[in-house]
Simulated scan of single mutants.
Amino acid sequence: MPYKNLNDLPKSVRQVLPKHAREIYLAAFNNAWEQYEDPEERQGNDSREAVSHKIAWTAVKQKYKKGEHNWQPK
């Protein structure tokens, strides 16, 4: 299901990402959710939700890197 705001994101995302990274995650997840509605658009057997989370993390990793204790801008 798409997320309406940053507080709706999974706790595991909210706890580790700074606000801007959460905004990226939210936008990427919601976009992927819409784009991959049709199972034929997805590779493998991943669910719509799993694909959307993978894409969201990929989007975050384009601008942020995981530091020793937190995520930081590249």
Rank of each mutant, 00 (worst) to 15 (best):
G44F: 14
V13C: 03
W33T: 04
W71G: 02
A59N: 00
N5A: 08
E23W: 08
Y36T: 04
P18K: 05
L17F: 05
Q15P: 07
A21W: 00
R42T: 07
N70A: 14
E34Y: 12
N31Y: 06
P18M: 03
N7I: 01
F29L: 08
K66Q: 04
Q43A: 09
K61D: 03
R14C: 05
A27R: 14
R48M: 01
P2L: 08
K11I: 07
H20Y: 13
K63E: 13
I24H: 00
D38H: 09
D46E: 14
K74A: 00
N5L: 02
E40L: 14
H20W: 13
Q62V: 08
P18E: 04
A32D: 01
R42G: 08
G67R: 05
L26A: 03
K63D: 07
H20N: 10
R42F: 09
K4E: 09
A27Q: 12
E49F: 05
S47V: 10
R48H: 05
V51K: 05
G67Y: 03
K65I: 08
P10S: 06
E34Q: 15
I24L: 10
D46F: 15
A28F: 07
Q15W: 12
R48S: 02
P73S: 13
N31R: 13
Y64F: 14
H69M: 11
Q15A: 15
N70H: 12
H20S: 11
R22L: 06
R22F: 03
K19N: 09
Y64A: 01
G67W: 06
K11Q: 08
E49A: 09
Y36I: 00
G44Y: 14
K11F: 06
Q43K: 13
N5G: 12
P73I: 08
T58S: 13
L6W: 04
I55E: 05
T58C: 07
L9Q: 02
A28K: 02
N5P: 07
V51Y: 04
R22Y: 02
Q43V: 12
E68P: 07
L6V: 12
A27F: 10
P2W: 10
P10W: 03
E34V: 11
N7S: 13
L6D: 06
E40C: 08
E68H: 08
Y3C: 04
Q43S: 12
N7P: 03
P2C: 13
E40G: 15
E37H: 10
P2R: 15
K11N: 05
Q72L: 11
D38Q: 10
I55M: 04
E68T: 13
N30P: 06
I55R: 06
K61S: 04
N7W: 02
Y25Q: 03
S52A: 09
Y36N: 06
K4Q: 04
E40S: 12
S12V: 14
M1I: 06
S47I: 12
K65P: 00
H69V: 14
K63I: 00
K66H: 01
P2Y: 08
D46L: 15
Q15S: 15
E37N: 11
